[in-house]
């Protein structure tokens, strides 16, 4: 359903409107000859984001390139953006799940647990990839995992409830190969299990390094970790 109105087609459609109108609009407010009311809401949204100076798309970003690419949607983004909320149809969910599973790569030598003490700080830290007027300098600090923003882990710090509690994760689930793979996959690309989940894809987006994932997993699974007290 969502797939039948691809954004690309919308973009093409309004690009021709602009050409027909014979003007390029850069000023924040001026609508010039571009008729907002002649566009669908999807087309207008894309226009405001990329063409009408709605966002500072030229800012440089940590991964190289400009902020514009942060606003360009990939296939998952398009499939999982349902206006009004909820999930897309089953066929779309299945496609998202399949693509996510295919995106996962494993470290050479298999999944490892790193240093839980480093993992503790990484699971707490929200540092990394923020831009705007106060951009994160990755030269200063490692990129954090933001896990506590959404999850409760060890109870010495207050975690969020957007995701389920992970308190006692290793203690209750054990450290079998299967559960380690599941946890790794969840961190790397959670859409492989929960298509259109709200949890970010920390591995396939390049947000976290393999070392950071190993440290965070140690924090979840190491018997010494306060998560498993």
């Amino acid at each position: 359903m969502f797939k039948k109105t691809p954004v690309a087609a919308g973009l093409a459609a309004f690009a021709s409107i602009i050409i027909a109108g014979g003007c390029a609009v850069a000023d924040a407010g001026k609508t010039g000859n571009v008729d907002y009311t002649a566009m669908t809401s999807q087309e207008l949204a894309e226009y405001l984001i990329f063409e009408a100076n709605g966002f500072n798309v030229d800012q440089e970003v940590q991964e190289g390139g400009t902020a514009k690419q942060r606003l360009v949607q990939d296939e998952m983004h398009k499939a999982c953006s349902v206006i009004g909320g909820g999930k897309p149809d089953q066929a779309t969910l299945d496609a998202v799940r399949t693509a996510a599973a295919a995106s996962i790569t494993y470290p050479e030598g298999g999944i490892q647990l790193g240093d839980w003490q480093k993992g503790r700080e990484l699971a707490w830290s929200g540092f990394g990839y923020r831009i705007g007027h106060n951009p994160d300098d990755h030269g200063n600090r490692p990129v954090g995992g933001n896990c506590y923003n959404c999850h409760q882990l060890a109870t010495d710090r207050t975690g969020g409830t957007v995701g389920p509690s992970l308190t006692g994760y290793g203690k209750t689930r054990g450290t079998s190969e299967a559960i380690l793979k599941y946890a790794y996959d969840m961190i790397y690309n959670p859409h492989a299990y929960f298509p259109c989940t709200n949890m970010p894809r920390f591995g396939s987006s390049g947000f976290l390094t393999q070392d950071a994932i190993a440290d965070i997993m140690a924090y979840m699974f190491d018997p010494e970790s306060p998560v498993n007290e």
Partner: peptide, 14 residues
């Protein structure tokens, strides 16, 4: 258009 933007996923954290 604001509604579309509100529900529009994108970016490093999706």
């Amino acid at each position: 258009a604001g509604e579309v933007i509100f529900y529009r996923r994108a970016g490093t954290m999706d």
